[in-house]
Simulated scan of single mutants.
Amino acid sequence: MAYMEPDAYGAMHGDGAPVTLSAADEQKHLLSYAPLVKRIVRQLNSQVAGAIDRDDMEQIGLMGLLEALRRYGEPDAAFGSYASLRIRGAILDELRRQDWRPRAVRQHSHKLRDAVRELTRKLGREPSEQDIITGLGLTPEAYQAYQLDESAESIASFDEVLQDSVGHDSAPSPEEQLMVRRSLEQALRGLDEREQRVVQMYYEFELSYKEIAAVLDLTDARVCQLNKAALGKMKAVLKST
């Protein structure tokens, strides 16, 4: 999802109404944008621990793509950004519908979250990755799983705010595009440089945490932490605008 692009949310066509596509055109565009679906599925699949079979995720993503085509009309240069949001939304909706995190996992995550808050109060600062691993007696693998779980929650929550920002039933009008673009620019300005890079690589270039970690020379868990912090800040800004 191209946060950095000036026309990131698409444009209406002609007199402001989407152009209706023929069945043949829909199939052509589905094939053309199928790699986008695969990239988003690959990205999300690494964060949901196989809760949905990858092939099933791709089918759900293709349905999101088809819905985007029918709402938007003939794709233009900005369609990919609009479609990305719809594809991700369709997959995240299905994950929520299936309650993809077992209750025991959710309860364990909440306990760890409370423990991290207590550690933060005790230290008087934001604990480092090593502080948390040592202070809570976690293995690096357990910490990684905790960060992925926390980040997945943040992503789902943030995407809901974005869905609300651009509307659910049609492609955004030029006025809505401008408002959302300005809100996102304002939200991005509130991030530090490294958080901006993580958000850009995750949403614009659709890289996985492992790929971002390799680029920035960080651990996967640290990338999760940065993404969660960035999305929290941006969500607060978007909700206030």
Rank of each mutant, 00 (worst) to 15 (best):
E26V: 03
L138C: 14
A156T: 00
R197D: 09
G232L: 04
L226E: 14
L119D: 01
G10I: 03
E129C: 04
Q27F: 02
S240V: 00
L184C: 04
G61Y: 01
S240I: 01
N45S: 04
R103Q: 14
L238C: 05
S183Y: 00
G89D: 12
L69F: 05
L162W: 01
V237L: 14
H108S: 03
P75S: 10
T20D: 12
Y72D: 14
V199N: 09
A90M: 03
L216F: 13
D217Y: 08
L36R: 07
Y3V: 04
L95S: 09
H29R: 10
A78F: 10
D15Q: 13
E204T: 13
L216N: 13
C224A: 07
L85G: 01
L136Q: 13
I133K: 08
Q200T: 15
K38Q: 11
Q59M: 11
D53H: 05
K228L: 02
Q59F: 01
R71V: 00
T241E: 09
K233M: 08
T139P: 06
T120L: 15
Y9N: 02
Q225L: 07
E211A: 06
T120A: 15
I40Y: 03
Q144Y: 10
D131L: 03
Q200C: 06
A90V: 00
P140F: 07
I155V: 14
D169T: 14
